[in-house]
Amino acid sequence: MVDLQLLRTLRVLYVQGTVTATARALHMSPSAVSQQLRRLAAEAGADLLRAEGRRVQFTAAGHVLLRHADLLCSQWERAVSELAEEAGSPRRTLSLGGFATSIDTLLAPAARRLNQAEYPTRTFLQEAGTQECYEKLLAGEIDLAVLTPLPGGPPLDDPRFEQSVLMDDLMDLAVPADHRLATQSTVDLADASTEDWIAPHHDHTRLIESLCSASGFAPKFVHRADAWHAVLSLVSHGFGVCLVPRLVPPPRLDVARVRLRGDPPPFRRILVCVRSGTGQDPTIADGIAALRQQAQGH
């Protein structure tokens, strides 16, 4: 009988790439992770990994077991969810993660709704970027994530997750109030092709690069700032322009937010994501429903 914990460690290792990073993600010691992996290989009767420098590579047998691990872990999560529903007394705690602007506009209001429901849910929230959300879901640190898909990330049909569209967040072009485009009701994204650009946090910078590329140019990033208030401050002082999602609070008075043309206009897709097999858990399902209700107002 294979311990599901060993399979979970294998799945996290596949994402993290090293024993040290896997240990950090699972809050274990590297020696404990190595011991679990040796035990799993012994129980499987096959070599699952091979070392390549500091990283490990999965053998053909390792990939076979990884595929079955995804199925087995998903089935176990589904069984636990059905048992909770059958018992009529689901767990009433929920850990949620998401990017910064989703906390203020989606996660925190939805969590408050869950806290104040007839059968309250105790919620725990944390800020995390897209890749970090996927990693925390696999490690069991969060139950539900709000994220924006990125190039090279898990596709919607990734067997490890259940992902669905929560909303599409339209993007505006933020320019200084005295900018040549500030008085326009709508503009094409390509109208900003010769401007200096402000690069926000990593995930959003990649999205801007993708949207600008689709409009036929590469943005010239000159300045960088992670927090949106810092980005807008740089815009207001004339250091560049930036694409700003509608979920970001209204800009400063010295920043104009110009709408973009397109069919559809540029947007960032926002997903709700849980571990495969957990979507029917009553508490997680309530969390998804609360988020959908909150998203309808935006």
Rank of each mutant, 00 (worst) to 15 (best):
Y119H: 15
Y119N: 15
Y119R: 15
P120E: 14
T121F: 10
R122C: 09
T123N: 09
T123E: 08
F124A: 11
L125C: 13
L125W: 12
Q126C: 12
Q126T: 14
Q126G: 14
Q126F: 10
E127K: 13
E127R: 15
E127F: 09
A128I: 09
G129W: 13
T130L: 13
T130S: 15
T130D: 14
T130K: 13
Q131V: 10
E132A: 12
E132R: 15
C133V: 02
C133R: 04
Y134D: 05
Y134W: 06
Y134Q: 09
E135D: 08
E135F: 03
E135P: 02
L137A: 04
L138N: 09
L138H: 08
A139Y: 03
A139Q: 03
A139V: 00
A139I: 00
G140P: 01
E141K: 12
E141F: 02
E141D: 13
I142N: 06
I142M: 08
I142Q: 08
D143I: 00
D143S: 01
D143M: 00
D143P: 02
L144W: 05
L144C: 03
L144H: 03
L144Q: 08
L144Y: 04
A145G: 06
A145R: 06
A145S: 09
V146H: 03
V146E: 04
V146N: 00
L147D: 02
L147R: 02
L147A: 06
L147W: 03
T148E: 13
T148G: 12
T148Y: 08
P149E: 00
P149C: 00
P149L: 00
P149Q: 01
L150H: 01
L150M: 04
P151F: 10
P151V: 01
G152L: 02
G152V: 01
G152Q: 06
G153P: 06
G153H: 05
P154W: 07
P154E: 08
P154C: 07
P155R: 09
P155S: 12
L156R: 14
L156D: 15
L156C: 10
D157T: 14
D158A: 11
D158H: 13
D158V: 01
P159L: 04
P159R: 07
P159Q: 05
P159V: 01
R160Y: 07
R160Q: 11
F161Y: 15
F161H: 10
F161I: 04
F161K: 09
E162N: 11
E162G: 09
